[in-house]
Design a protein around this nucleic acid. Structure first.
Length: 207
DNA sequence: ATGAAGATCAGA
DNA sequence: CTGATCTTCATC
């Protein structure tokens, strides 16, 4: 008996739909590095390009956002607050992408811990966009990586677990524009979701 | 050329 | 709550 089910690479067609449809479908998928590190995606946010004032791509392509306007199924990685890398998956129309906000460590946990040596609690390893890139070793060198071909050592895979049956959309975190758009989704009950402090009001949460 | 803001995090 | 740290882009 395999300890973990076989992983299948998610095909290109998966990324074709609008970002706000792909985003909740990304929940429970697995982001896997060739070195064995992998995380289950438990929180995402959609950014909708020209439709979305909070998106980096809102005012059209720039040097930084070029990847967002390229083919679907690629990683868009940007440098945030002069400190952190954040990673998105391109999908839908040009300019659209889904920010990966949190992962639950799935494999290669030793390597993940080595990448975040000061972290004690398991749930802090990948519960935030800056944290998960650190955990998996994703940096600017991965900007433009093809998640289907795995050309730069990263793939999006599935172990067969479906996204949550009920997709509850909530407001996105950390933005100052278009705050009313419900474009954030997470796996209900997951302890590995980010921004717990900010979730205390509505909806179904931990407990 | 310049500066303000930024899809964040850890530590006090 | 605040400091860290630096790139990006709009404006001057």
């Amino acid at each position: 008996m395999p300890r973990q089910p076989a992983l299948k690479t998610v095909p290109r067609v998966f990324y074709k739909a609008d970002a706000q449809l792909v985003a909740p479908q990304l929940l429970n998928k697995i982001l896997r590095m060739d070195d064995g590190r992998a995380g289950r995606i438990v929180e995402v946010e959609a950014y909708r390009g020209a439709e979305d004032p909070a998106a980096h791509s809102f005012r059209g392509p720039t040097a930084r956002t070029a990847t967002m306007f390229g083919p679907n199924g690629h990683l868009y990685v940007y440098f945030s607050y002069g400190i952190h890398w954040c990673c998105n998956i391109t999908c839908g129309l040009p300019g659209q992408a889904v920010l990966i906000r949190a992962i639950e460590p799935y494999a290669g946990v030793e390597l993940i811990r080595a990448a975040r040596p000061s972290i004690q609690r398991e749930r802090d390893l990948g519960s935030g966009p800056g944290r998960l890139t650190q955990a998996l070793g994703i940096t600017g060198s991965h900007d433009g990586a093809d998640l289907v071909k795995g050309d730069r050592g990263v793939r999006l895979m599935s172990d067969g677990r479906e996204p949550p049956a009920v997709a509850v959309a909530t407001a996105r975190i950390g933005i100052s524009k278009a705050m009313d758009l419900p474009l954030r989704w997470y796996v209900p009950g997951s302890a590995h979701v980010s921004g717990i402090r900010r979730l205390r009001s509505p909806g179904v949460d931990l407990e």
